[in-house]
Amino acid sequence: MQLIETQSSQFLGQCHPLALVLYFGELFTGLLLFNHILITGLFFLGLCGLCCWYFGGRAVWRVVRSVLSLMGLILFLNILLNRAGVSWWQFTLGTWHWEVSRVGVLYGATMALSLGGMVMAFVLFNGCVTASQLRALLNPVAPRLAMLLTLAIRFVNLFIQQFRRLLLLQRTRGLVVTAGPWRHRLTETGNLLRVLLLGSISRAMETAILMEARGYGGRHRSQYQHYRWRLADTSFTLVAGGMFVVILGLRVHGWGVTPNIYSLPGVLATDWWVAGVASLVVGLPLIGEGLYRLCQN
């Protein structure tokens, strides 16, 4: 998935990493709390819209395309395997009988939308909270973990680039993972990963030596990036926290939740209340952007 980042001049780009992490924590929890198709659909579409606002429609469409294929697979498997409840459509071919149940379609769609929402929330998180922000956040409590996280993010990226190059160039050594029987492909993929690992370890050793040569590991590290907690962060966190408490309360009362999959998907007035609050949670960054612009000189 392509790495996309918000512009630092926007409201989210100016937020304190802790405020961002708290907001995204609430957002991810919210996504897990509700299983009503109205709410999950709203989360998914709202997050797609939010991503488009920050990263541009073209960049987001590339991500959504791959997410849609995953969502389609989940929907298809549910339609194939879930035959509970009322049948919407039946098909018989000789002795083979197949039916598409209403529950299969709706439950599959709910699960797909929930997963899609989760992925889009992660895309937004990835674009808003940079590695250096995470490091700055973790550094005071777990400096080694903070540095390890930064290195891991960089090396995963290098790993992917290296894998792509190997995929291309190892063909000159007779190692092709895209042709032949599946068993052969699996063996070849294993061989490719072995080469990838060997090469990466070799380079990582060299990098580690060069890190030491620049004083890494010598003494307690200081920190360059310091983020100041501002009034805007307090306001953002309080509003987001308040909404989260409301959402939790609604969830405790059983609003926006379908306890019985056979009752899918009657939309009650209570669900609309949850949808309203969920829209505010998803739209909070946009409200922040609006207020941030209003405050411009």
Partner: peptide
Amino acid sequence: VMATVIEELAFSLENV
């Protein structure tokens, strides 16, 4: 080892 130019320059200084 870092993600951006400024972080890479700061890395050395942070180490010492």
